[in-house]
Write a protein that binds this DNA or RNA. Structure first.
Lengths: 157, 157
DNA sequence: TCCGTTAATGCTACAATGTTGCAACAGAAG
DNA sequence: CTTCTGTTGCAACATTGTAGCATTAACGGA
């Protein structure tokens, strides 16, 4: 039981100390884990492996490709992070803000960016065939983001 | 109570002659294309690349891995087939039964199978941020299918 | 503070999935 | 039958993710 006690009133209020988060899961507090959690907290959108790796490099935190994979796997396993199938081949990751905050995502097919749609719940618990057990739902909308939509208008003009 | 209705009765009526479908798009009617369309029509669930390849091999249709990729890309481009991000790394493909028949999918995390939820529409067109253009929605439910759910009960018993 | 234990890391090699370029083949029309 | 060109097949490569194992370093206790 994690029992967050008080409901997070806002996004920024959710940003907890990475070290506490990690330690609370019984894991060792390592540079890589701290840096990854900080990166995810700082990124407003789900980040790809590559993007996280670049952020670590920029922060001067040495890391190995494999270590990053394992670190992210561990964070997901602990419920600290969440894995998203962006619609492309690579996974993306975001900080988990509790079950209640599950939301849909928008994938721009022009720039490849994925943005969180915090207002759109990820599911409406539909009727499943008998015997099926639902774990979670993933809703991804595909299209063009505001910026790319503008560009497209210019292109076709 | 899965409300069978007649959602599936149109399924078989939808099965058109592969040759006509392909020719109608202005493409050449080749062995590979015909066999792939037939395979997709025969499969009740979205199929992976591997599964389609195996079906072609079983049907005695020689093919190359790359050709299969390109054939599927072409079918998707023409709107004959639809590409689904199953939640794993590989794409899955199904025959497109028209825009109205877009539906959600269920991904079993134990056996990896993906099944069509013909009754569940893929989205309820939510409110997007300004400037965003929606092309399509993809709803994937994750959990355990009936068969794997049963197994799990046995396992833990 | 130093030490021992062992969770994490880093490296190398590998597996799975998808793509590019190009020469050869074959479907469709004349 | 011939030609034209859309498709195919092959080989090499790119991207994304895993497995095994020796080494490092986080954390608790002496």
């Amino acid at each position: 039981m994690s029992a967050p006690s008080h409901a997070h009133s806002s996004h920024s209020a959710d940003v907890q100390d990475p070290r506490s988060l990690i330690a609370a899961c019984g894991g060792r507090v390592t540079r890589t884990r701290v840096a990854v959690v900080e990166t995810l907290q700082a990124g407003r959108q789900p980040l790809s492996h590559d993007e996280i790796g670049a952020a670590l490099a920029a922060a001067g935190v040495a890391h190995d490709r494999v270590t990053l994979y394992r670190t992210l796997d561990w964070l997901v396993e602990q419920g600290i992070a969440r894995r998203i199938a962006s619609g492309e081949r690579a996974w993306r990751f975001e900080i988990a803000h509790g079950e209640a905050h599950r939301h849909a995502h928008f994938h721009c097919e022009r720039c490849g960016q994925v943005v969180c749609l915090d207002d759109v719940p990820a599911s409406a618990t539909p009727s499943l065939p008998a015997g099926f057990e639902l774990d979670r739902a993933e809703l991804v909308l595909h299209g063009a983001c505001a910026e790319c939509g503008r560009q497209r208008v210019q292109d076709s003009a």
